[in-house]
Design a protein around this nucleic acid. Structure first.
Length: 650
DNA sequence: AAAGCCGTAA
DNA sequence: GACAGTACGGCTTT
């Protein structure tokens, strides 16, 4: 195999004689290709996920990338360079390029030489010897508040992120280690998993990665939607057995977590407490061993009610064994990361299905929390019967003539601001979201799947098209302004229905609702090119309906995911971007056109000319209405932290 | 009802 | 062409 090194001379890697039995190709730049047909596939996949980032995991081969971050993660899990190189040599079809060997050595040699931990309420950096401390001190001197000894010092608690980043830049990564078995300041909870909690192999495996050599390290666990993240989190908390602060992103999921803790562990109801905006300080047990709250509430910087203020103070004052962070991809957000930073904890564990953001900030999790310790393979969980099998379709809907005309007007004389002036973008969004051919396809799919007795979720970020479908087809809607009571009511009906049933959701449905499993998801409009949102929506059909075949073997249910896209609009670009993540997880999108066919469409409401004309009229008007209600005003500028979006390590 | 906040686009 | 500060829809908390 030939390769070029830094644009200079070409070098050659010799193919080993028995290369066909070996599963890996490894490039000098750290890219790995794994052939899934190999007899050593399983072992090789385990090894790759331990030392490298999964880029894509398709049916016939996987791609991984060895990065500094992945090597730090691997090394902090106890894999040393020698072992990594040995296994890599064994599995690779060719000799290893010297560059890759050097890279592995470089990014592992200093791991473990510096540790970060919480002691008596202070953050301590400690070296195994004097030298590493000497090396890093010049870089972090400004935030050192006390030198304890030649090989350790205290730093400002709010500067942890800064210190970790600096140390990482000079190749001396800090590892946050918690010797929980010998910690006397945090009391042992003495709780266990409930007997009915059956851990799945991958759940145990992911938590095992937290506990290395009898100590706990901080890190992030990535499991697909519906794979049982809560049980995994509860298991981590139980295994650590120390006071735990759990962050969730909405009040609904706070209740969920409280419920899950009670269900999966032996913690008594009086030892766990959920805290949301409507919790009163007087009726809260702030000494509970496990507290669950939202990022928003804890990170809120506006005016607080007296009650909240009191509660926040107590949480800040306590010393936590564990911070469990649900939907951890949210944590890089400005106020959320600050919220985490001002909480004192020995160990942090983050959970998410979608370790994805459309900005660069996902990398910051390494400094806010720690390395990614495990990322499950979606297709493997499908094959294991843990997740439903999902067929994904991209349904292409041509714009109606009238719609296209208006759509093009938004581009007309672009530099002059377009026909609709400053509202161009919104009109565009409304137009491609409420394209009558799209709504027709949606109507058709709803009808078809209701006949099949499916439970259907229709997602739309555009409230206009959501409303139109809701009112014209008589379907229930849950959106931001829907009251809590009404939400519960709708969800209950959705859950209990045994016939076909459809519910329409705005982006509240992405994360903030506790929805029962659906079998069909139809997406008619989305938030730009957000891969996270696409994955989360697919996730709504991943929880399988287990069915037993005649041999008593349990198999996952069949589910369908449709993404409706207006042809020849900017939505096409978004759609392909959105699909990337799922494609990398091994899903294939089948493209469909002509849904419904001409004959099938005649009976549909959205095929009627008068309805279509009205639709267009309302679509163009909907924006004006809003403006009459709320005359545009200049809003206050918000504080900007430029550091958030800076690229690093390049 | 108002203010704060998040994610995304351009 | 990259980047920095901004606009905007929609959600949660007050």
């Amino acid at each position: 195999m030939e390769y070029e090194c830094a644009g200079k001379e070409k070098k050659c890697l010799t193919l080993k004689a028995d290369n066909e039995r070996r599963p890996l190709w490894v490039s000098a730049m750290g890219s790995i290709i794994l052939e899934t047909s190999s007899e050593f596939y399983k072992e090789a996949a385990d090894f790759c996920i331990a030392i490298a980032e999964p880029e894509s995991r398709l049916r016939h081969f996987h791609e991984y990338k060895i990065t500094p971050a992945s090597l730090y993660g691997a090394a902090s899990a106890g894999l040393d360079a020698e072992k990594m190189i040995k296994y890599l040599k064994m599995l690779c079809k060719t000799d290893l390029a010297p560059e890759i060997i050097h890279m592995i050595q470089k990014h592992t040699e200093n791991v473990g030489k510096l540790a970060l931990y919480l002691k008596d309420g202070s953050i301590v950096v400690e070296g195994i010897s004097v030298q590493p401390i000497k090396t890093i001190l010049p870089y972090v001197r400004d935030v050192v508040i006390e030198k304890i000894s030649e090989k350790s010092f205290k730093i400002e608690p709010l500067k942890i992120e800064f210190v970790r980043q600096k140390c990482r830049e000079i190749n001396f990564p800090l590892v946050e280690i918690y010797d929980y078995k010998n910690d006397k300041t945090c009391p042992d909870l003495g709780i266990k998993l409930s007997p009915k909690a059956q851990l799945r192999p991958y759940q145990k495996k992911s938590v095992d990665k937290i506990f290395i050599n009898g100590k706990a390290r901080s890190g992030v666990i990535v499991l697909p939607c519906g794979a049982g993240k809560s049980l995994t989190g509860v298991y981590a908390a139980v295994r650590l057995g120390k006071p735990c602060l759990c962050f969730a992103n909405t009040s609904v999921s706070v209740d969920q977590w409280v419920f899950q803790f009670k269900m999966w562990s032996t913690i008594g109801a009086n030892r766990i407490q959920g805290i949301t905006s409507n919790t009163k300080a007087c009726e809260v047990n702030l000494k509970a061993d496990i507290l669950v709250t939202t990022y928003s509430m804890y990170g809120y910087t506006g005016h607080r009610s007296k009650d909240s203020e009191e509660i926040i103070k107590v949480i800040e004052g306590r010393e936590w064994g564990l911070i469990l962070m649900d939907e951890v991809h949210m944590v890089p957000a400005r106020n959320f990361r600050d919220a985490v930073a001002r909480t004192k904890s020995h160990c942090k564990v983050g959970l998410t299905a979608t370790l994805l953001r459309e900005d660069e900030a996902i990398q910051d999790l390494e400094f806010i929390i720690g390395p990614k310790v495990y990322e499950a393979n979606w297709q493997e969980l499908v094959e294991g019967g843990y997740l439903a099998n999902v067929e994904c379709y991209e349904v292409l809907c041509p714009m109606s003539k009238e719609y296209m005309r208006e759509y093009l007007k938004t581009y007309h004389s672009y530099h002059g601001g377009g026909f609709y002036g400053e509202d161009n973008k919104n009109i565009q969004h409304t137009l491609y979201s409420s394209n009558p051919n799209k709504l027709m396809a949606c109507e058709y799919l709803i009808k078809y799947h209701e006949q099949q007795r499916d439970k259907i979720i229709v997602f739309s970020d555009n409230l206009f098209s959501l409303d139109q479908i809701g009112t014209r087809l008589q379907k229930l809607i849950i959106r931001g302004e829907t009251s809590h009571q009404e939400r519960t009511e709708v969800i209950k009906r959705f859950k209990e229905s045994d016939k076909g049933f459809t519910v329409l959701l705005s982006k509240v449905g992405d994360t903030s609702l506790d929805l029962p499993e659906a079998t069909v998801v139809i997406q008619i409009s989305s938030q730009g090119g957000s891969r996270r949102q696409e994955a989360q929506r697919l996730g709504r059909v991943l929880r399988p309906k287990p069915t037993k075949d005649k041999f008593g073997v349990i198999t996952g249910g069949q589910a369908v995911f449709y993404s409706l896209v207006s042809q020849d609009t900017i939505e096409m670009c978004f759609a392909s971007k959105r699909q990337q993540f799922l494609v990398n997880q091994g899903y294939t999108f089948t493209s469909m056109t002509n849904i419904p066919t001409k004959e099938e469409s005649s009976s549909l409401l959205f095929s009627r000319e008068d309805v279509q004309a009205q639709l267009l009229h309302l679509a163009l008007q909907s924006k004006c209405d809003q403006e009459q209600k709320q005359p545009p005003e200049k809003k206050k500028k918000r504080e900007h932290k430029s550091s958030l979006f800076k690229k690093r390590f390049k």
